[in-house]
Amino acid sequence: MKDRFNLYRFASPATFYPLAGKLIPWFVALSVVFGLAGLYLGMLVAPTDFQQGEGYRIIFIHVPASWMSMFIYLVMAGWAAIGLAFNTRLSGMMAQALAPTGALMAFLSLWTGALWGKPMWGAWWVWDARLTSELILLFLYIGYMALTAAIDDQRRADKAGGLLLLVGVVNVPIIYFSVKWWNTLHQGSSVNLTKSSMAETMLWGMLLMALCFWMYSIAVALMRVRTIMLERERHTDWVRAELGANSSGAAK
């Protein structure tokens, strides 16, 4: 009888490592394709906005980066929940591999937001509810990375980081709404980004760029998780075999 295909087989680093290695080029290629298509649509095809001129085109980086920064935090919390519930090794590694990408996305979102805000609102920074929550999200990423970096024992780092992620994910909506109410109580929303209608090409450009960011994040997270696996499992036979094969291959 043939073995049925079993997804759980890839929960072990030894089997996931080669799978990730095979998947990475695909995601990189998809990211490049989506990115080129999205940039083409966004920079060349999409019409100039009648209010904001050409400056609005930063939206094609800004919005996908903000989406990813929020989504990656949720994915990390999901991995943390799986890791704490089923005590799987791979979950903690995935959460740790995703964290720097998430922080990068949050930072990119803030940075492009500032670059966008200066010509449009005349200020690099306003204490808008969305900006403030994005900044706090960046703080949460940094807190997670600082905690996992401070713990030497990897198992403890995974679990403690996972717990922090779960506490954070419960708090994110509370923080978001409190910031929102704080903002409206203080000064009223000075910034309104809701557009009545968006040109179809703009929307497609943004979606393609979002897909590009997705593929990029997956590819980078897989690369990072491969490194983490090698580092943590360096005492095992499969890593020795892997590294031995690589070094002999390089020597030839």
């Binding site: 706090i136 703080f139 949460l140 940094i142 807190g143 600082a146 905690l147 401070a150 713990i151 403690a160 717990l163 922090l164 506490v167 954070g168 708090n171 509370i174 923080i175 409190s178 910031v179 109410w181 704080w182």
Partner: peptide, 27 residues
């Protein structure tokens, strides 16, 4: 509890906890 027994525990603690304090501060 998360930073128990870690080096640089105090600074790390403020890094973890202060963002979570924001709602209390606001209200």
């Amino acid at each position: 509890a998360l930073t128990l027994g870690l080096r640089g525990g105090g600074v790390l603690l403020s890094l973890l906890v202060l963002p979570l304090y924001i709602p209390v501060l606001i209200f």
